[in-house]
Design a protein around this nucleic acid. Structure first.
Length: 466
RNA sequence: GGCGCGGUAGCCAAGUGGUAAGGCAGAGGUCUGCAAAACCUUUAUUCGUCGGUUCGACUCCGAUCCGCGCCUCCA
C-alpha cells in the first residue's frame, strides 16, 4: 500500500501525494520563543522530522516552512520584565531552539521565518480581508467576523452555531461582535511594541502570521500543514478561515497533528515539577539521541508517556542496535552470500517501509528492525551469515538510521583518542597472553572509566565508546 | 454540556474479524579466564467490565467503568 496519512480534516487515513510534481509543500507551526522549548514541543518537532525524512525517502523533495513567533503577549511581558526589547529577548530563545533541535538531529526546514519580518504582508492580508467584508473594527483593533465564514469549524469538527456574543467573558477586554471572533490586528497599547501601518498603529494577532507566511512561501494551497493537537482549535481553524477567505481555495490538503506527551502519566506542568527541557535531560546524563529515540518510538498520533524508565529503556535499545552494527563491522564472516538471508533483509526492509507508509507507524517499523537483528544475530552464531550478507545488513541498518538517526553517538568532549585506546588494548592482549588476568582486568577497568568498553570476541578484541 | 482520544504482560507499546509484534525489566541456560556482547528458553489461554452479532472478536455493535485532551493562551 502506498504512503498514507491520517488527515484531521477528513478524520480518515488517506493516500498522500503532492498536488503538483514531486515537491511537498509543508508548513509547520513553530515555537513561540519566550522560553526554552520543552520536551512536549520537541515531540511535535521530532514527529515533523520523521515526516520530512520519510517523505524524502519516498522520493519527494521538500519545501517546508516553519515560523518562529517572536511577537506575542507572553513575549512582550517577559521582555519587559527583563528590560529588553522583544528582539533582544527572542533572539536568545530562537537561538536556543535551534541548538536544541540540532542536538536532536532535526532537519532544518527550507524556510525558517520570523513573524516580525512579515508584518507588512500581514497588514496586506488583513486589508484583503477587509475588502472582502470579513472584518470589523472595535476600539481600533481589527477582528475577523466568523459568521461570514460558514465552514468555520470544519477542521476541529465543532459546531459553533450555538455560541453567541456575550456567552463567555471576553478576556481581551475588547468588544467582539461574536464570542468566536478573533483578533487580526491589535490596537497599540502603551508600552507595547507596535507598527505604524495603514490599518492603524498596533501589532498583529497570533493567527494571521501563519496564514501569511505559509502562503507567501508555499502558495495558496499547501500539501501538508502540521502542528500539535492543541493547535487544531482555534489556531488552525482560524488559519483556514483567514486563508480561504482571501483565496477562495482550500488552504491545506492534509492536516497532521501530533499528540501530546505526558510525564510519568501526569500532565507536564511547572507546578508539578515535571517540566523538562532537552537541556534538563542532557544535564541528567541522557544523550540527545536517547531522547530522540523515546520520542520517535511511539507513533505520533498516540499520547506518549514520557518516563525516566522509558529513557533508560531507550538508551538500552539504542545500545543493542549499536552493538549489532559494531558486530557487522568487526566480525569476520565466511566468504559468500546466503540467499535466504538476503531474502530476510528484503523482507525486513519491506516491513519497515510499509510500517512508515502507514501513517508513520514508527513502533511497527522498529519491531521490523529488532526482529531482523535477532534473526541475523542468530544466523551469525550459527555460522550461516556470510560476507555478502553483512553488506546488505549494513545497508538496511543505514536505511533505518536515515530515518531514526540514533546510531551515531553524540560526541563526548574529552577522553582518550583512538591511538591511546589501541595502545592500551595491545598492552592488555600481552597481559592476557601471559595469563596476567589481573593486569588485563585493570587495563579494561581503566579504559571503562574513560568511557571505552572492551569486548573479547572469538576473532579478537573490539571496543566502543560509551 | 459539545467534540475527540485512549484503556493490550512489571513498564513502554504494535495489531483491529481467524486465534496476542517488538523494546525494556525479571528468571534460567549456552558461550567466556572473568566480563561484555550475542543467542536460546521462560514471563498475557488473554487484550478495562458486561452483554450481543459471528463458525470464529482484542478487533464489529450496544451498554458500562476508568483515564486524558480540546472547547480562552498552549506542541
Amino acid at each position: 500500500m502506498a504512503l498514507r496519512f491520517y488527515n484531521t480534516l477528513t478524520q480518515q487515513v488517506e493516500p498522500f501525494a503532492p498536488l503538483s510534481g514531486n515537491v511537498v509543500r509543508m508548513y509547520t507551526c513553530g515555537p513561540t520563543v519566550y522560553n526554552y522549548v520543552h520536551i512536549g514541543n520537541l515531540r511535535t518537532f521530532t514527529f515533523q522530522d520523521i515526516l520530512r525524512r520519510w517523505l524524502q525517502a519516498r522520493g519527494y523533495q521538500l519545501d517546508h516552512v516553519m515560523n518562529i513567533t517572536d511577537i506575542e503577549d507572553k513575549i512582550i511581558r517577559h521582555a519587559a520584565a527583563a528590560h529588553q526589547t522583544i528582539y533582544e529577548y527572542t533572539a536568545k530563545y530562537a537561538e536556543a531552539f535551534l541548538e536544541d533541535t540540532d542536538k536532536l538531529r532535526l532537519q532544518r526546514p527550507e524556510h525558517l521565518v520570523k513573524a516580525t519580518d512579515h508584518v507588512n504582508e500581514m497588514v496586506e492580508a488583513i486589508q484583503k480581508l477587509e475588502q472582502r467584508g470579513f472584518t470589523y473594527l472595535s476600539d481600533g483593533s481589527v477582528y475577523y467576523r466568523i459568521s461570514k465564514f460558514p465552514e468555520y469549524g470544519k477542521l476541529s469538527h465543532n459546531d459553533f452555531s450555538g455560541i453567541r456574543a456575550g456567552a463567555r467573558v471576553d478576556v481581551d477586554e475588547y468588544d467582539k461582535a461574536d464570542a468566536r471572533d478573533f483578533v487580526l490586528w491589535k490596537a497599540k497599547k502603551d508600552d507595547e511594541p507596535s507598527w505604524q501601518t495603514p490599518i492603524g498603529d498596533g501589532r498583529p494577532g497570533w493567527h494571521i502570521e501563519c496564514s501569511v507566511m505559509a502562503m507567501k512561501y508555499l502558495g495558496e494551497t499547501l500539501d501538508i500543514h502540521t502542528g500539535g493537537v492543541d493547535l487544531t482549535f482555534p489556531h488552525h481553524e482560524n488559519e483556514i478561515a483567514q486563508s480561504e477567505a482571501i483565496t477562495g481555495k482550500p488552504f491545506a490538503r492534509f492536516w497532521l497533528h501530533a499528540e501530546h506527551l505526558s510525564i510519568e502519566a501526569q500532565k507536564m506542568s511547572k507546578s508539578l515539577g515535571n517540566f523538562y527541557t532537552l537541556r534538563d535531560l542532557i544535564g541528567m546524563g541522557y544523550p540527545p539521541e536517547v531522547v530522540r529515540y523515546l520520542l520517535e518510538s511511539v507513533p505520533y498520533r498516540k499520547k506518549l508517556n514520557f518516563t525516566m524508565d522509558g529513557l533508560k529503556a531507550a538508551a538500552t535499545s539504542i545500545e543493542r542496535l549499536r552493538n549489532y552494527k559494531l558486530r557487522l563491522e568487526t566480525d569476520k564472516f565466511p566468504a559468500g552470500t546466503n540467499d535466504n538471508l538476503i531474502e530476510r533483509t528484503q523482507k525486513a526492509t519491506q516491513a519497515f517501509d510499509e510500517a512508515l507508509d502507514d501513517d508513520l507507524n514508527t513502533a511497527e517499523a522498529l519491531a521490523a528492525v529488532f526482529e531482523y537483528t535477532r534473526d541475523t544475530n542468530t544466523a551469525m552464531d550459527a555460522g550461516e551469515f556470510l560476507t555478502g550478507n553483512a553488506i546488505s545488513a549494513l545497508e538496511f541498518l543505514q536505511h533505518f538510521d536515515s530515518i531514526f538517526d540514533v546510531l551515531k553517538p553524540t560526541a563526548q568532549t574529552g577522553g582518550v583518542n583512538d591511538e591511546e585506546v589501541e595502545a592500551e588494548i595491545a598492552k592488555r592482549d600481552a597481559a592476557k597472553k601471559s595469563r596476567d588476568f589481573k593486569m588485563a582486568d585493570q587495563i579494561r577497568a581503566q579504559l571503562a572509566e574513560k568511557g571505552v568498553i572492551i569486548e573479547d570476541t572469538k576473532q579478537g578484541v573490539r571496543w566502543k565508546r560509551q
